[in-house]
């Protein structure tokens, strides 16, 4: 049976790992390759590197980092941040990335998702969606959660899935940084709606939150950052806990 995945997310800026609390205030947490290797050795199922300040001038740094990660780490990883074209994505692939995630660029130009899927295959294309729950609606935000758009979560997720996205990485802005658990109702709805895997993001604080997002949220994978970076939860303990709770996870 396919195992539920635990995915540490490493936000990187200028080649260093950082983690924003509700996307603001950044705290340095080390070298992305070293940290990635630690997580891989601990049993992380894959890694996400999110370049939060990618600009044209910095692409070279990102490419070098991707190459170093690919050379040193033997589990899959996704690179996101600033990927806006086939050319950007091809550079990531050429340097050894397994997947790219696109967010703002896809909202600006949804055709990008279809083009990426056609060029590289759906398995290479993760669409990251940051959304905020306001009343009945989940409003999609871009630019690291700073700008609201006229897109709504479920319609947007359906559209990108139809266009060939291989996975959806959904971050609830209401839950991110709260450590109060994942947005399981919205996640379950996404998972029921869509044929592709859903990665839950935003809200991890305790081990039970992971169990809940796999069971109640029907998520295929759960992503977290600071709980791992600051050793509030260690991955081997988390996996053993999930296994004991009857969740299928990969144990060594």
């Amino acid at each position: 049976m396919l195992a539920k995945r635990i995915v540490p997310c490493l936000d990187v800026k200028d080649g260093r790992t950082v983690k924003g609390v509700n996307f603001v205030d950044l705290i340095d947490a080390g070298d992305p390759v070293e940290l990635g290797k630690v997580y891989s050795d601990q049993g992380a199922d894959e890694l996400v590197f999110l370049d939060i300040t990618a600009t044209h001038e910095e692409r070279k740094t990102v490419k070098e980092m991707v190459r170093r990660v690919a050379a040193n780490i033997n589990i899959p990883f996704t690179i996101g941040g600033g990927i806006g074209s086939i050319k950007d994505a091809a550079e990531m692939l050429d340097n050894g990335a397994d997947k790219v995630s696109v967010n703002s660029a896809a909202v600006k130009n949804p055709q990008l998702v279809e083009n990426l899927a056609r060029e590289f295959g759906s398995q290479f294309v993760v669409v990251a969606i940051d959304a905020k729950n306001v009343g009945e609606d989940w409003i999609v935000h871009v630019s690291g959660g700073r700008k609201p758009t006229d897109r709504f979560l479920f319609e947007w997720a359906q559209l990108v899935a139809d266009m060939g996205a291989g996975e959806i990485l959904f971050t609830s802005m209401n839950h991110d940084g709260t450590k109060g658990g994942f947005a399981n109702d919205a996640l379950a709805k996404l998972s029921d709606m869509l044929p592709i895997p859903i990665i839950a993001s935003g809200g991890a604080g305790e081990m039970q939150h992971f169990k809940d997002t796999f069971v109640k949220g029907k998520a295929d994978a759960a992503l977290a950052a600071s709980v791992f970076h600051f050793h509030e939860i260690d991955i081997p303990d988390l996996k053993q806990y999930l296994h004991n709770e009857g969740i299928t996870v990969r144990l060594d």
């Binding site: 049976m1 195992a3 398995q123 044929p195």
Partner: peptide
Amino acid sequence: SGEGDLKVPQMGWNQ
């Protein structure tokens, strides 16, 4: 087939 709860592509770790 993608029937039931199965996700396609199969993406992840399996035995």
